[in-house]
């Protein structure tokens, strides 16, 4: 009896802790620092080098407030004008499984900050880093790769894609940039 209670309490506890992480609203957090993020894991010498994951960065895509703020800033910084609601326009779609410069949150972060040669402007110094992380987390949610229980279903706007809560995670692959694109 007691052991069963204990087990269920533990289970409950775990769910709840996940809840804490999801629900925190950090206004004052220092942005995770990253260095050495390459858009590709292809490396001369034969051993691929996976992206160095930053656990603090990963929290952004599990936190509802950050994702929601990311959605706001995605609009504020005109990301939508090139990527629409994820379907793409001048820029490539963000809701599919193709990532020219890598789909990990760290890679998305560096794509936003550094810019990419075929038209993606660099936002370095224009968007404070914490907000870039938030935008990156929101971008991850478009392809279903942010935590499902942390994403908003829709915004108060014209109906666009499927509700983000319903988008299945898209298996990602990293691709080097195509020529001429």
């Amino acid at each position: 009896m007691y052991s069963r209670c204990l087990a269920s309490l533990l289970l409950l506890g775990c769910t709840l802790l996940a809840g804490c992480e999801r629900e925190t609203r950090a206004f004052h957090e220092e942005a995770p620092a990253i260095n050495d993020v390459s858009p590709t894991d292809f490396r001369a010498g034969g051993t691929p080098r996976p992206v160095a994951k930053n656990p603090q960065a990963a929290e952004y895509e599990r936190n509802a407030f950050h994702i929601s703020e990311g959605k706001r800033y995605y609009e504020w910084y005109n990301c939508y004008s090139c990527h629409a609601a994820g379907g793409g326009d001048i820029g490539p779609p963000l809701m599919d499984d193709e990532w020219r410069y890598g789909g990990e949150i760290e890679q998305i972060f560096s794509s936003i900050v550094e810019g990419r040669p075929n038209g993606m402007p660099s936002f370095a110094g224009r968007i404070p880093e914490q907000q870039v992380w938030e935008i990156a987390a929101y971008v991850r949610s478009m392809s279903g790769n942010a935590a499902k229980d942390a994403v908003p279903s829709r915004g108060d706007e014209i109906k666009t894609t499927k509700p983000l809560t319903q988008v299945p995670p898209t298996p990602e692959r990293s691709e080097p940039p195509r020529s001429n694109r």
Partner: peptide
């Protein structure tokens, strides 16, 4: 939920849009 920092935060009458998906993130 409240003790785990997931307490509702939009007032007991939860006016939308503040309580809607866009402005009340999380669960």
């Amino acid at each position: 939920a409240f003790l785990m920092n997931a307490g509702p935060e939009t007032g007991w009458f939860s006016y939308v849009p503040l309580a809607g998906p866009e402005y009340s993130p999380g669960k």
